[in-house]
Design a protein around this nucleic acid. Structure first.
Lengths: 167, 167
DNA sequence: ATCATTGCAAAAGATTTGCAAGGTC
DNA sequence: GACCTTGCAAATCTTTTGCAATGAT
């Protein structure tokens, strides 16, 4: 019953910004314009993104609200530490997704259009824990990525193939 | 059942070197000393490795059998194309493992000692295919990494903790 | 006032590439 | 001999870091 693009949210007491401010306070870190700007931008859409995509969405150098590249990287790491974001690697670069207030899930990755499709599976968690138990392994987390071709791209590909065959 | 370090091998007609030579021929590529050296080195041990580890095991610059860094990278990519190796990302760098003649498996990754422990799970494959079917997704491959602390490191940690507690 | 944070420029680490010289078919 | 491959140096890409100036508490 889960939609591909939105697996629903979990009840949370605080907004991401509030949660982050709490984190900053607890560590004696400061609540700056840049950090607020980035929380806002990052949590305004529920998509997977990388550092460059995020930087592209921010105001350019000189414009108000601009944040420098090093600060973006630094702050993304803070978001991960604070439990706001989860980070993983795809094709050699870091990809981020919402973690705070968002349920555990895994991904189908279309190597044609680079789209990530989310899915949830309780059986996967059970399987993971069973494997861990057999190996006396203490699980912290896991990451499953199923790579292939999504429905849309399969259709496009078939169409192209047919066209090519006819020529 | 399966040993952690060796999941057994699959019946294959050709040795990795023979298979690679076939691949080279079929593509009009050449059978060079460097390529032969690297096939030999890579398939002499069944361990996960990265480019640097491999380079460290090769003769140094000046010694016979030395292969330059760019050629190592180029050749590793060829091995992946040829189906000899599988490549994945771990902590931001590429890790390789035998693919040709070796059964499909997944990994437990100890973040303490960086060791990769292999396991096989038919249920995982079934689960993967079921999820793909539900999403009309055509699977090419998948990668599951379960991160945590291995048995050995758990023991070491407990010992350390106890020691610390006593001081 | 103190001390964290920012932005800049530069560094770092992993991997790739242009090109001339050398090797394979 | 044709042309693929190698090694070198340099480039690339992504991410990190040193440091002086700036800003938050």
């Amino acid at each position: 019953m889960s939609d591909e693009q939105s697996l629903g949210t979990v009840e949370v007491a605080l907004s991401p910004l509030e949660r982050f401010e709490e984190y900053l306070q607890s560590r004696g870190m400061r609540n700056t314009d840049q950090r607020r700007m980035l929380v806002e931008q990052v949590f305004s859409h529920h998509e997977h993104f990388d550092a460059d995509t995020l930087i592209d969405k921010l105001p350019r150098k000189g414009q108000p609200g601009h944040v420098s590249r090093p600060t973006v990287y630094r702050t993304l790491n803070e978001f991960v530490d604070a439990g706001l974001l989860r980070k993983f690697e795809l094709d050699g670069r870091a990809v981020y997704e919402h973690d705070y207030g968002y349920p555990q899930h895994d991904h189908l990755y279309c190597k044609q259009c680079q789209r990530l499709i989310e899915f949830q599976s309780a059986e996967l968690i059970a399987l993971r824990d069973a494997v861990a138990r057999e190996n006396s392994f203490r699980v912290t987390s896991h990451r499953l990525i199923i790579t292939g071709i999504c429905e849309t791209c399969q259709r496009a590909r078939r169409r192209t193939k047919r066209r090519v065959d006819l020529v």
